[in-house]
Design a protein around this nucleic acid. Structure first.
Length: 271
DNA sequence: AATCGCGCCTGACGGC
DNA sequence: TGCCGTCAGGCGCGAT
């Protein structure tokens, strides 16, 4: 599933194909994504030139002079750039057709994805304005997390998965980062020391950067791939490894459901 | 203000 | 083999 590293990989993959190209059409085969694709997007985007492709959390932003398309891949979304006349398959819900004969195609079997249109400053869009900091940029560190966690009783795993605290930490990387920082996922966010938050912030950055690096190898032929599922899998230390051996202490990895989501951890060395 | 649970949706998988 | 129930999961939203 697309987590921050995969969204960033997608961004880097599509950017060279979109930059300074004009949209000639938007072909919508199924408008029923998480929110229906709006008439204003379908009417406004054609004719526009894409000036930049940026990312905010797991949202991709296609900036044009008239406005910004906000794209989210949800759980199962993927993007490809391909010849515009390529036969669409079952879950290929829409194409953003570009001059030069290619199209950006969104495939999303579960349709948890989103494509929205906004004029004005996209950072002030309802979905973006209250997001927490980017974990790989300036204002994110252990002191920030520690300050935000004061008096919070929520489990730390849920805390770091809250996009209003920090963006881009999904279910997989939350488990992985907590393992690296040796923090038990159920521990109350307010009961974690400043020092441990510093280790956690570092761990989050480490795991996200490593995953982006792993995703990088699929960039070369991005237009022909969906992004090789599970490439980062071999690096996972706890996620989806229930009953397997902890590489650090030899204990047994355990799984449990926290906040409706499966969580993996080593009960022996995460406290 | 913080937290919790719901619902959107399909494919994979296990049980019978 | 086929049918059916269950689970997975990002994340906004409404309720508490």
């Amino acid at each position: 599933m697309p987590e921050l590293p995969e969204v960033e990989t997608a961004r880097r993959g599509i950017e060279p194909h979109l930059l300074k190209h004009a949209v000639t059409a938007v072909v919508v085969r199924n408008r029923n994504l998480r929110w229906p694709v709006s008439r204003s997007l379908i009417e406004s985007l054609p004719g526009q030139r894409i000036d930049s492709v940026t990312r905010r959390g797991k949202y991709l932003l296609l900036h044009s002079p008239a406005g910004t398309a906000i794209l989210h891949l949800g759980m199962s979304g993927s993007l490809r750039v391909l010849p515009a006349d390529t036969l669409a398959e079952k879950h290929d819900h829409l194409d953003i057709v570009l001059d030069g004969g290619r199209a950006l195609r969104l495939r999303d079997p579960r349709r948890f994805g989103t494509l929205l249109w906004t004029t004005g400053n996209p950072a002030q869009h309802k979905l973006l304005r209250s997001l927490g900091p980017e974990p790989l940029e300036g204002h994110f560190d252990g002191d920030y997390l520690f300050a935000k966690a004061r008096r919070r009783k929520v489990a730390i795993k849920n805390f770091i998965m809250n996009s209003h605290i920090v963006v881009g930490v999904g279910n997989i990387y939350a488990s992985e980062a907590l393992f690296l920082a040796r923090i038990h996922p159920q521990r109350a966010a307010g009961k974690v020391s400043r020092e441990r938050y510093q280790a956690l912030a570092k761990a989050i950055r480490k795991v996200l950067n490593a995953a982006i690096k792993a995703g990088g190898t699929t960039l070369r032929d991005f237009s022909r791939t969906d992004g090789e599922p599970g490439y980062f899998r071999q690096h996972l230390r706890v996620y989806d490894r229930e009953g397997k051996t902890c590489e650090r202490c030899g204990g047994s990895i355990r799984s449990r459901v926290t906040g409706q989501r499966s969580t993996y951890y080593c009960p022996k060395c995460q406290t």
